[in-house]
Design a binder for these strands. Structure first.
Length: 548
DNA sequence: CTGACAGCGG
């Protein structure tokens, strides 16, 4: 065939054309003219470049020009389509490619199926990913990894862990990639039991701690509230890159160990590793959560030493840090001076949080109204404004806000808490009555709250349910998801066991104060991870020192 | 340039 002598120059031209569409099309036309239009390596290269040019249409046109696509080309197509559409109507393009796969009879090709699974998973279409996965007659470890990581990356950690069990039941040996995803899922739901099992398994099977698994373990232990163990893993790592340092710093941060985070950050600066943007987010948020204002300011200004430009997230941390510390004016000045005039909503949201915390009604209302103007569909802003008004005793405005929310059909995010007992995870939502032992749990909780009251606990009814009477408000607070999870945990574990709860939202003030009291009455250590950070309750006080 | 499908940190 002629293809031999055209082969090498065509490649040369293709590379020169690069990812620009016009030249690419010209070279493609030339290739077709020379009779090499069906040469597979040229087609693969064309697809790659079309994808780099972000032209989904051209990607597909090249593809349909192939007379006999094989498994390899299908794979390239799926991969390039995935990159070229970069989220834009991805599931539509996915289905088109998928259709073509089925028509061509490659619907049962293991590699093609695995590629489809990861395509759908990457674009949050877990339903279709799962459908393809379930149809697979032969599954590879990689296919299992694709679906597990798909669930994990889309926040469906429990599903990911469920599939991990199924994978092992099916007799597959998980590999390092599996463990990375599984550890990430454990971190999400606080499943330290399973996480430690993975740790032992990895060591026992002689995989050794590479930097990736090590980092995943640090993250898992830290996000399960076990900072000591995280640090042990960190210290045992031979090779530490930026990611590992960052994971450890942020681990200290979310657990409220600001001083240790700063110390480690300085140690990092003296080491070979160079901090990046993410490292600075970790250290700044650690400072914010521990009230280390000066250290935070220093870290922020040291960013330029590394030629890093602070982004929205760094600004959010700074405003949060200043705001929490009560330096509202300075936070406001920071936004006006350091951040451009059009500060991102997230920055104002941090400012708003500070206004609520320090009960600054005037500024709070101003900021909230500004936020609502920019993001009228975000229920969080209305809830914040309503809470601020309630704290200021402006019940008339609370009522108006509530009605607006109802009119706009905006709902508060539903809160839930999980607790892991004997490697099983239990989920509770507010006022949950799904658990088979509901009545026992509620009865125990009532009893417990009675004991807490005797010990001096007072319900903090300030910022909730303003339309209710005092007594009803207290009742509404009593069955918050974290309280239910704690009651269940106390019933199910022997005395002395530390309880670990993971909550998807921030804890309310009442729960915070109730749990402090519960830790005394039951003489238990209770660890709650909320949306932002950890609270370690012991002997009536919390590691956050009421600073959150 | 006969190979592909999976994978960490705020």
């Amino acid at each position: 065939m002629e293809t031999k002598h055209i082969h090498s120059p065509a490649y040369h031209y293709l590379l020169r054309a690069g990812p620009r569409l016009k030249p690419l099309q010209q070279v493609h036309a030339y290739i077709i003219l020379s009779g090499s239009g069906q040469n597979r390596s040229l087609l693969t290269k064309l697809l790659t470049l079309a994808c780099a040019a972000r032209s989904i249409d051209y990607t597909r046109r090249i593809f349909f020009s192939v007379s006999n696509p094989d498994s390899f080309l299908f794979n390239t197509l799926i991969r390039t389509t995935s990159k070229a559409c970069a989220g834009l109507s991805a599931s539509k393009h996915g289905r088109i490619v998928h259709g073509q796969v089925l028509v061509s009879g490659y619907g049962l090709d293991v590699y093609v199926q695995a590629a489809l699974v990861s395509f759908y998973a990457k674009y949050c279409d877990l339903g279709n990913a799962r459908k393809v996965f379930d149809k697979m007659q032969e599954r590879s470890v990689v296919a299992w990894n694709s679906i597990i990581s798909g669930y994990e990356q889309n926040g469906l950690a429990k599903k990911a862990l469920g599939l991990f069990d199924k994978m092992r039941e099916a007799g597959f040996q998980p590999d390092l990639a599996t463990f990375v995803s599984v550890l990430s899922a454990c971190a999400q739901v606080g499943a330290v039991g399973l996480g430690s099992w993975v740790h032992e398994h990895v060591i026992g099977n002689g995989f050794g701690l590479n930097v990736m698994i090590g980092t995943s373990l640090i993250n898992m232990y830290a996000r399960c509230g076990n900072v000591k163990k995280a640090r042990e893993v960190f210290d045992s790592m031979k090779e530490k890159n930026v990611v590992a340092w960052t994971a450890m710093i942020s681990g200290y941060g979310v657990n409220g160990y600001g001083v240790q985070a700063v110390e480690l950050f300085h140690q990092m600066r003296r080491s070979q590793a160079i901090p990046n943007n993410v490292t600075f987010i970790a250290i700044l948020s650690a400072c914010a959560h521990s009230g280390l204002v000066n250290e935070g300011r220093q870290a922020f200004s040291s960013m330029r030493e590394y030629h890093l430009v602070p982004g929205v997230e760094h600004h959010v941390c700074m405003v949060d840090m200043l705001g929490r510390a009560g330096l509202l004016d300075e936070a406001y000045e920071f936004i006006k001076e350091t951040v451009s005039k059009e500060a991102a909503p997230a920055i104002w949201t941090a400012m708003l949080g500070a206004c609520k915390m320090h009960k600054n009604f005037g500024l709070g209302v101003e900021v909230a109204e500004r936020l609502i103007a920019v993001e009228p569909e975000n229920p969080g802003h209305y809830v914040m404004l309503s809470n601020i008004c309630a704290l200021a005793g402006r019940m008339d405005r609370v009522e108006v806000i509530r009605n607006t929310m109802i009119r706009k059909r905006l709902k508060k995010q539903v809160g839930y808490s999980t607790i892991e007992i004997d490697q099983k995870t239990y989920l509770f939502s507010t006022g949950d009555k799904c658990h088979p032992e509901t009545s026992k749990i509620y009865q125990y909780l009532d009893e417990l709250m009675w004991q807490c009251k005797e010990a001096g606990y007072l319900a903090v009814v300030d910022s909730v349910m303003h339309e209710l009477e005092e007594e009803e408000r207290e009742y509404a607070l009593r069955y918050h998801s974290e309280k239910l999870a704690i009651a269940f945990g106390l019933l199910k574990t022997i005395s002395g066991t530390t309880l670990k709860i993971v909550k998807n939202l921030r804890m309310c003030e009442d729960c915070h104060s109730a749990i402090k009291s519960i830790s005394v009455v039951t003489n238990r250590e209770i660890v709650v991870r909320d949306k932002l950070r950890f609270h370690h309750f012991r002997n009536g006080s919390c590691s956050c020192q009421d600073y959150w």
